[in-house]
Design a protein around this nucleic acid. Structure first.
Ligand code: ZN
Ligand code: ZN
Ligand code: ZN
Ligand code: ZN
Ligand code: ZN
Ligand code: ZN
Length: 546
DNA sequence: GAGTTTGAAACT
DNA sequence: CAGTTTCAAACTC
């Protein structure tokens, strides 16, 4: 298989046309800062050569302003999650995204680079917020390991794009998880629409590709089933693609009616359960502290610099006062009537099926106050039951089943809908599950959850299409609600679940490599510097020999 | 147990 | 407000 000779060159990129086929894993890159600025390629330092392995390579290979890189030599180069930044080249401290939002240039952010420069040259033409990747070794103090070196993949967890632009046909964000092995999302390469990427996290390396201006460096035998693929049609965007629409935030309609979860765990107003916190930084004077939130003094807790004790009565009371001032309901129990969470949750990735969700944790169904995505914590949700079972919350599981039965009963028989309010019929049924296709994000989340909650079969089928054929409890039976699925992504433990056009398995080629087919050699080079994972893929023999 | 994920709380 | 950061619990392996 030989790469097509028709090389796709990003419109405004000055990247010199790569060889007809990748062939040897060599790169040429210009030391011209301008070229670098435009192409996003490495800009060589003009000043004293540093001592990093990369510099060594450059120094030895420097060829009249152009440096030649070869794979073998690159092996000595430590991967740098922050792109070139870690190597001391073109490092610029991350810019606050708020400043970058208006970033709308047609040139590379700067010849001086930016932290975690996108490995993809297309970036230069986007008006998307640049990605702030982290510097390798960034320390992050979190509960799990204060001061621990974070793997490249988890430095940034906040959206890399704020104010995600509306759908941009053709533009995709490519991400790859690095530094880990296994089935986790972070190990996968994903591509998604910019708007969805906005909600993503943990992207050690990512960049944007404009498929409208690119074509895959495909093997001649490659025929993508999707006609719109190749260079994705610039004309009609009818191709809904996986990201045609964002998931509607499921707004549940109030279940002001009966079906209630009585798991029995409700321990009334004055929590008798002993709370033990492990606060490290809040001094137990913020609602972060469970003790404080419960207006309990810390006792036998594992907190640091605790002020939530009688010895600091004044400070403590002032804190309580201040907290109340900010929110009069701060200390009010969130589950008032035993049926609703007073403020609802806003879960995005847990399906409200983990205790991260306050509704789920409180054993109440999500309600109209909730603004959760892909909620599975509703009356009749079989996944809810399964989850509780798995957690061995048998009481909760039983309660959920019972609620479903009661609900179903009311649905068929007399249960005057109006009695529950006009929208009772819609009830907690997440509309979006019925009418919308799952996003890549959804599928990834589902995949993660699937590990435990769903059976492999469910994962492959129902969950795959996300809540595709939706199973629900209907009076003890499981019924399926058919949902048309726009995409039927393939999935495996090592290749990501994506949607067309990287959807189908072609010649057993890994999805990630399919994605990389869109990258030119320069891109690959940069990608190789980004992370270990990127490097492995960028230099994959299959990719270079096709 | 260490490291990761998550969404409320806090902050700007 | 909305967007972002901080935080400590929940969770995974
Ligand atoms: Zn505390
Ligand atoms: Zn405490
Ligand atoms: Zn304390
Ligand atoms: Zn929730
Ligand atoms: Zn909820
Ligand atoms: Zn929910």
């Amino acid at each position: 298989m030989v790469r097509r000779s028709k090389r796709c060159t990003p419109p405004k990129s000055e990247f010199s046309p790569p060889p007809k086929k990748r062939g040897r894993k060599t790169f040429t890159t210009s030391s011209s800062s301008q070229a670098a600025a435009v192409s996003g390629l490495l800009s060589l330092p003009s000043s004293p050569l540093p001592t990093t392995p990369l510099r060594k390579v450059l120094a030895s290979q420097n060829n009249g302003g152009r440096a030649l890189f070869e794979k073998d030599l690159l092996d000595d180069i430590p991967f740098s999650p922050g792109g070139l930044s870690e190597l001391g080249l073109d490092f610029t401290p991350p810019v606050k995204s708020s400043h970058l939002n208006s970033h709308n240039t047609t040139t590379h952010p700067s010849s001086t680079g930016r932290a975690g420069a996108s490995p993809f040259t297309d970036f230069v033409n986007t008006s998307l917020t640049p990605l702030n990747t982290m510097a390798h070794g960034t320390k992050r103090a979190n509960n799990g390991g204060v001061g621990s070196l974070m793997s490249p993949s988890s430095i940034l967890r906040k959206p890399l794009i704020s104010s995600p632009p509306l759908s941009r046909n053709g533009w995709v964000r490519v991400e790859i998880g690095v530094g880990m092995e296994g089935l986790k999302e972070i190990n996968r390469m994903t591509w998604r629409s910019p708007e969805i990427a906005g909600a993503d996290e943990n992207s050690a390396a990512s960049g944007y590709l404009n498929l409208n201006t690119r074509s895959p460096h495909q093997p001649s035998s490659y025929h993508h089933p999707n006609a719109a693929v190749g260079p994705p049609s610039q004309h009609h965007h009818q191709n809904p693609g996986p990201y045609g629409s964002l998931p509607m935030q499921g707004s549940h309609n109030a279940p002001s009616g009966p079906p209630v979860l009585h798991s029995g765990t409700g321990m009334g107003r004055s929590q008798k359960k002993k709370i033990v916190c492990n606060c490290k930084k809040s001094k137990c004077l913020k609602l972060y502290c469970e003790c404080f939130a419960a207006l309990q003094e810390c006792d036998s807790c594992n907190c640091n610099e605790c002020r939530n004790v009688v010895e600091f009565r004044e400070i403590r009371e002032e804190a309580i006062r201040a907290t109340k001032a900010k929110n009069p309901n701060a200390f009010r129990q969130k589950i008032a009537n035993q049926t609703n969470h007073s403020t609802g949750c806003r879960c995005k990735k847990s399906f409200c099926l983990k205790k991260y969700c306050e509704c789920y944790e409180a054993n109440v169904f999500c309600g109209d106050k909730c603004r959760c995505a892909n909620c599975a914590n509703y009356v009749g949700s079989i996944k809810l039951v399964e989850r509780r079972k798995k957690i061995k919350d048998h009481k909760g599981a039983a309660a959920a089943v019972k609620a479903a039965e009661i609900h179903h009963e009311q649905q068929i028989h007399g249960g005057n809908p109006l009695a529950w309010g006009d929208e009772q019929k819609l009830e907690q049924m997440p509309m979006h599950m019925v009418h919308e296709s799952p996003t890549a994000e959804d599928m990834l989340n589902a995949a993660q959850l699937a590990g435990g909650v769903m059976s492999p079969r469910d994962f492959g089928k129902d969950l795959n299409a996300e809540f595709g054929p939706k199973e629900e409890y209907n009076n003890g039976r499981v019924s399926k609600v058919t949902v048309e699925s726009a995409s039927t992504p393939t999935n495996s433990s090592t290749t990501i679940t994506t949607s067309a056009p990287f959807n189908n398995d072609i010649g057993g080629l890994k999805v990630e490599l399919k994605i990389f087919q869109y990258l030119n050699n320069g891109d690959l080079f940069n990608a190789g510097l980004v992370s270990k994972g990127f490097k492995e893929r960028a230099f994959d023999d299959t990719l270079w020999n096709m």
